[in-house]
């Protein structure tokens, strides 16, 4: 085993040790935000696979996350709960009697979403660039309309309530690390190189003999799987889902994460997830009433959004391609950095 692999495994162990320490010593609020970071890290990384690595400007995540959330929630809710909740139209009987534990529900949520992604891939990859963005945006909107209108499956606008709170820090980070590893392996494989070729110049990639359609499809289906699982995790974290939760705003938040982190850089996505999720929580301070040197400043609601927007603008001015650009963190570079320093000292 090479030095780099050992270091990577050690750092993953370190992450889990940190979580173990945190779950005993941090307060539940802090842990809740870390759970959210885990879920958004997975969503961001999978979205970055389509947008950043394969270069397909797609706006579909809210649709995929919604499918995953609904499938997982329907599977884990008990028949009695569903009976009490569907007050307008009773649920379709075969769905109402379905009931299973959390893990298979998540896997099925991922698979169903991946299958929808597979079907969706056929029409949407007939177009490129801005047109792709419009088509996938339409898909996200359609999912919401479907969720509002198939009342006997989704309970319409009333949404699903009382979902068991299964999601904990281990589920979130277990999936996040797993997704990260899988996606990094894809990026560094033959498929990943083909995806990057498509991103840089699709016509040239076709000329080199890459079957661009299937390569894009792989990116899309893998991303759909993890977004579906992420939706399932989110549903069991918040315990209430309704169509309003999956608006374009969710996609927009993920888009901020991958653009700020750097399109195509997974480590950038990780940094940006931390910045976006923790940033919006830590900046609550600026909305509280403050006493500075006897001067009383009343709390201004919405102030944190202003500060956060300024922060994003500053980042985008000084780092045009996001925090990491297209680069990744690598152990080699880190060691080279130390070596150079040593040389300089001598």
């Amino acid at each position: 085993m090479s030095r780099n692999n050992i270091l990577t495994i050690l750092s993953i162990i370190f992450i889990f040790l940190f979580i173990w320490y945190g779950s005993h010593h941090f307060n539940p609020y802090v842990m809740k935000i870390w759970e959210e970071v885990g879920i958004f890290l997975m969503l961001g990384a999978s979205y970055n696979l389509i947008n950043g690595v394969a270069g397909q400007f797609s706006l579909e995540p809210n649709g995929f996350v919604a499918i995953g959330a609904y499938v997982a929630a329907i599977l884990t809710l008990t028949p009695a709960q569903k009976g009490a909740m569907f007050i307008i139209t009773p649920m379709v009987p075969w769905l109402q009697n379905l009931h299973m534990s959390f893990f298979p529900a998540l896997i099925i949520a991922g698979l169903v979403t991946a299958f929808v992604g597979f079907l969706l891939g056929f029409p949407v990859f007939r177009v490129r660039g801005d047109y792709l963005a419009i088509v996938t945006l339409g898909f996200g909107l359609t999912i919401r309309v479907v969720a509002n209108n198939t009342i006997s499956i989704t309970n319409g606008a009333l949404g699903l309530k009382g979902i068991a709170n299964y999601t904990n820090i281990w589920w979130c980070w277990g999936w996040a690390v797993f997704a990260m590893v899988v996606i990094m392996r894809i990026v560094n494989s033959e498929f990943g190189r083909a995806m990057k070729a498509i991103r840089d110049d699709e016509d040239a990639a076709i000329a080199m003999g890459i079957n661009t359609f299937w390569i894009k499809m792989i990116a899309f289906v893998v991303a759909a799987f993890f977004e579906g699982v992420g939706g399932g995790l989110l549903a069991h974290l918040i315990t209430v889902i309704s169509p309003t939760m999956f608006t374009f705003f969710l996609t927009f938040q993920l888009l901020i994460i991958i653009v700020v982190g750097g399109l195509g850089s997974m480590t950038g996505t990780a940094l940006a997830t931390l910045l976006v999720i923790w940033g919006s929580e830590l900046l609550r301070v600026v909305e509280q009433p403050m006493n500075i040197l006897g001067l009383h400043i009343p709390g201004i609601p919405g102030m944190r959004m202003v500060v956060f927007a300024l922060l994003l603008i500053i980042i985008m001015i000084f780092a045009r391609e996001g925090i990491m650009g297209q680069k990744e963190f690598s152990w080699d570079k880190l060691f080279n950095l130390f070596k150079k320093n040593k040389v300089a000292q001598k």
């Binding site: 319409g156 606008a157 009333l158 309704s242």
Partner: peptide, 8 residues
């Protein structure tokens, strides 16, 4: 249709 308040 898309407002839980209204439907309920």
């Amino acid at each position: 249709r898309d407002q839980d308040y209204s439907v309920g």
